[in-house]
Structures are given as structure tokens and as C-alpha cells.
Design a protein around this nucleic acid. Structure first.
Length: 484
DNA sequence: TGAAATGTTGGGGCG
DNA sequence: ACGCCCCAACATTTC
């Protein structure tokens, strides 16, 4: 009697890769035929359905993945609807699969959904298993001596440093063949690409997909890792890894990144320090997931309860000027325009523009988080939430509220030759380096020679930083007064 | 992963 | 030679 072919379904989500994909490895090792599906169900993501930039990336990532799967003789099944569970049930019926496997996600709504599906299908006799493809350490595996989650990065870092190193990545076995899916959608049917030409320049800086991720990582390891500590702060240079979207969509395995970085030979103390600093940044990402998992309401609510009473201002006009890069502070405007044009912003500049929104304009960090969510190709709920609550002073291990960035000084310090501002704010490009970060103080002659007409072709500062800073500090102490 | 305000120190100009 | 003042440079405190 011939044994019946055992069929499995692998449900891909933010793990759009074939390499070091635990769910896929498991299915291929234990089943004869493996179907691979992607389900696009934005309404199950709570308030955080993919933003416009994320959708652009997702489209291209799925396309790249389809090609990878085709090389293995299969096809990626793409489906859409209003319930992942309904779609999965249909696929299990159509394919006759008896096992379904996926890699875990950590957002609150998604976890609730996944657990329900796991219970339901498990009770009906399907083999259902989830795996870790996204993190070095599961959020529930890291806790303080008292068994509580961490809220401060440094002790979190110390703790994970004592844990076992993350396991080595495992490639998909050479011979693994994937099955052909019938009846899926065309990628175009998901309507992920923007109607306007907004995203036309994205592909100049970004190449979604597993191979694009591997290239970005290799280039970073070769060119920038060992000078990361200083290089990461200069926005005009390629001193950062720029792998964040690849990590978000799981095109790159975090375990692989960790081990490749750790294995780079660093000959000088400075090089070793750079390597360590980068590993620490990877641990910040873990910390963000740790916080998101243990404090699932933080995407919309401050972790530090007192901040619920903070007197945020509401101004559509000012928020809009910030989004457009028309604040009158060159480094802020450069960052916001880089974001709009490329779907990316250098991390140093992210901190500067965030501080400006939250402290100088006193507009809620949540408005900033929403804008980044819609416009960043690497938008990630854990990192975005941690970053914005850090900037707002209301989150885990946040900057104290009185730590206010001075956009002029930040520009002069980290964009000293103004290459970054000249690139993204071309109307200031002919202004001398001496004045370019503070055009409102430039002598009229210098402005005229550079063709800058403040208030006409480049705005005057929308707020006076010195005044805005002291008002922010006053609002902060008012909040503390009212809550204590 | 700040910046401003305030305090301290020490060298040099000068009477 | 000495004390005084100025102020840059650095350190510390405060927001």
C-alpha cells in the first residue's frame, strides 16, 4: 500500500524569505508537499494596517518571493479577504493539507487572532505550530530577577548578554521542492501600489526582497560596520546598515545578521566598539518587541501614565508644515523631505524631527508615529512605538522630557558641511556652510547672493526654538504638578 | 542618543 | 613681583 502524500501549508507573514525560515524548514522536513501562502488581511491589524510606504515594499517583496519560490518549482499563493481564518480553512480544504505552520508575530491584535486560529484548527486535528523567525530572544524568555519585564534598556542588554547566543541560521535544504498553488490572486489584485507617482524614487535607494536584503547587509559589513560608532551619526554618509525594512518584512533573518556581525573580525579597539554598538542596536529592536509584547497598549497610549495628562497642542496647520518639511529649520526640513521622497530617514535625523514635533511644536508623539507609519518603508509597530515614546519622554527608558534637541546645533554638529541639507533642501544649497543651518541669522547680502528669500522661497522658522523650549519645559512641569 | 546655565580654574595682560 | 581682572576652557548643575 503506497503511503499517501502528506501536505502542509506554510502561512507567510513578516517572514518573506526562504532562508532560515523555521516554519518553512519544519514543513519541508516533515511533509511531502509544501504549499506557501501569503494572506493580505489588513483589517485584522487593528489600528495599524500597513501604511502606504509599507504597501509599496510589500508588493515588491512578494514579487521577489514569488520568483524565489518559482525557482523551487512552486508558486506563492496570494489571497486576500476579511478573515485570515476563513481563507486558511478554504486553503486547507482545497490543498488537502493536514498541517499549517507559521512564524510568530507580536502585535496584540495579531497575536489574539493567531491564537484563536491555532486553537480552532488544532482542535480539529490539524497539526498547527508556530515558530520564531523574527527575534533573537522571545519577549517572554527575558525577565528581571523578579520575573517582570524590563522597562530600561541597559539592564535588558545586560540580561540578554548572559543568555545563550541565538541559534545559528539554517538554510532551506537544497532539495526542498515547493508546491504549485491554484486559484490565488495576481499580486496586482492586492492594489498595494500608490496611485500617484509618489513612490517613483523609492526604488533608487531600496530593493525589496531577500536578495536585496542580503546585498544591503553585505555592503554594510564590508563598508560601514567597523566605523559604525561615529559613522552612524552623519546623515550625509552611508554609515548605517539600512536593513530595517528587510528585517521588518523578515526578508533577512535576524539570527543571520547577528552571527554575521559577530563573526566580522575587528582588529582595533575602535572597530570592536563599533561592532558592539551595532549589536546593541539590534538589541534595541529586541527591546522594542519586548515592550510591545508586555505593554500591548503602547502604540496608542503612553507607557508612563502621567503623560496622559500632558497638554499636547493641536494644530493641523503646524503638523502639516512639519510633514511637508516647511518648518524653517533646515535639518528638520531636510529629514522630512528625505522621508517623503525616499520612504527612509536617517536615524539621527529621525530623533531631531521627532524632538521638534514633540517639544518645539508640542504636538503629540502619536501624530508623528502615525505619519512615520504611513511614510516609512521600514515602519514597524514595535520600533516606531518605542522610538516615538522615547522622543516624547513618555515611554520605556525615554529621554527625560527636559532633554530638548536644538535643531540648529544638531545640524551644525552632525551635518557640519551641510551636504545633507543641500541635498534635500535645494533652495538653500548655495548658502554658505556658516549660515545654512541658521538662515534667519544670515546677513541679507549672504541670503541674496544665495538666492534665498526667507518667507518666500524658504520659510522663516515657524517657532523660536528658545521660546518653544521654555514653553515645553513649562508644560512639562505643569503636568507633573497636576499629576502628583 | 542634549543644551543652557552656572561654577571653577588658570594663564596672561596690566597697573 | 604682585594682585587684580578678564575670559577662555573646562566642569558641574539645572532644566
Amino acid at each position: 500500500m503506497s503511503k499517501q502524500s502528506r501536505k502542509a501549508l506554510v502561512w507567510l507573514r513578516n517572514d518573506l524569505r526562504l532562508d532560515d525560515n523555521p516554519a518553512l524548514n519544519f514543513a519541508c522536513e516533515n511533509y511531502d508537499e509544501v504549499f506557501v501562502a501569503y494572506l493580505y488581511v489588513p483589517r485584522e491589524e487593528g489600528d495599524w494596517a500597513p501604511g502606504a510606504a509599507s504597501k509599496w515594499w510589500l508588493h515588491h517583496s512578494l514579487k521577489a518571493l514569488s520568483e524565489r519560490i518559482a525557482e523551487r518549482g512552486g508558486s506563492l499563493g496570494v489571497f486576500s479577504g476579511d478573515s485570515s481564518e476563513k481563507i486558511l480553512r478554504r486553503l486547507l480544504r482545497d490543498t488537502q493539507a493536514t498541517g499549517v505552520f507559521w512564524n510568530r508575530r507580536y502585535e496584540f491584535h495579531v497575536r489574539a487572532r493567531d491564537e484563536q486560529i491555532k486553537r480552532g484548527l488544532g482542535a480539529e486535528g490539524f497539526e498547527v505550530m508556530s515558530f520564531n523567525a523574527q527575534l533573537l530572544w522571545e519577549p517572554w524568555e527575558v525577565s528581571t530577577g523578579e520575573g517582570k519585564p524590563y522597562q530600561v534598556f541597559t539592564p535588558f542588554w545586560k540580561k540578554v548578554s548572559t543568555l545563550d547566543a541565538p541559534s545559528r541560521p539554517r538554510a532551506l535544504s537544497r532539495g526542498a521542492r515547493l508546491a504549485r498553488f491554484e486559484g490565488g490572486l495576481e499580486l496586482e489584485d492586492l492594489n498595494l501600489l500608490p496611485k500617484l507617482s509618489w513612490a517613483s524614487e523609492f526604488s533608487e535607494e531600496s530593493s525589496p526582497g531577500e536578495l536585496g536584503g542580503a546585498r544591503a547587509l553585505q555592503s554594510f559589513l564590508k563598508n560601514a560596520l567597523l566605523s559604525y560608532k561615529g559613522g552612524r551619526d552623519v546623515p550625509s554618509q552611508r554609515g548605517t546598515s539600512r536593513i530595517s525594512p528587510h528585517l521588518h518584512f523578515g526578508e533577512l533573518s535576524i539570527r543571520k545578521v547577528w552571527h554575521l556581525v559577530s563573526d566580522v573580525e575587528a582588529k582595533t579597539p575602535a572597530a570592536r566598539e563599533s561592532r558592539e554598538t551595532y549589536l546593541k542596536e539590534l538589541a534595541w529592536r529586541e527591546f522594542a518587541y519586548h515592550i510591545l509584547f508586555h505593554f500591548p497598549e503602547t502604540p496608542t497610549r503612553p507607557l508612563r501614565e502621567a503623560f496622559s495628562a500632558f497638554p499636547w497642542r493641536t494644530s493641523h496647520k503646524e503638523l502639516s508644515a512639519w510633514k511637508k518639511g516647511l518648518t524653517g529649520y533646515p535639518i528638520v526640513d531636510a529629514g522630512m523631505r528625505e522621508l517623503w521622497r525616499t520612504g527612509y530617514m536617517h536615524n539621527r535625523v529621525r530623533m531631531i524631527v521627532a524632538s521638534f514635533l514633540v517639544k518645539d511644536l508640542r504636538i503629540s508623539w502619536l501624530e508623528g508615529a502615525k505619519w512615520f507609519w504611513d511614510t516609512l518603508l521600514d515602519a514597524d509597530l514595535a520600533s516606531n512605538t518605542l522610538g516615538w515614546q522615547w522622543a516624547g519622554g513618555c515611554g520605556a527608558d525615554a529621554a527625560p522630557y527636559f532633554r530638548v534637541f536644538n535643531p540648529t546645533l544638531q545640524g551644525e554638529k552632525f551635518d557640519a558641511d551641510a551636504d545633507y541639507v543641500r541635498r534635500w533642501v535645494p533652495e538653500l544649497s548655495r548658502l554658505s556652510t556658516k549660515w545654512i543651518h541658521r538662515p534667519w541669522e544670515a546677513p541679507p547680502r549672504a541670503l541674496a547672493d544665495a538666492g534665498v528669500m526667507l518667507g518666500k522661497n524658504y520659510p522663516l522658522p515657524m517657532v523660536d526654538h528658545k521660546k518653544a523650549r521654555s514653553e515645553a519645559l513649562a508644560a512639562f512641569s505643569a503636568m507633573r504638578g497636576s499629576s502628583s
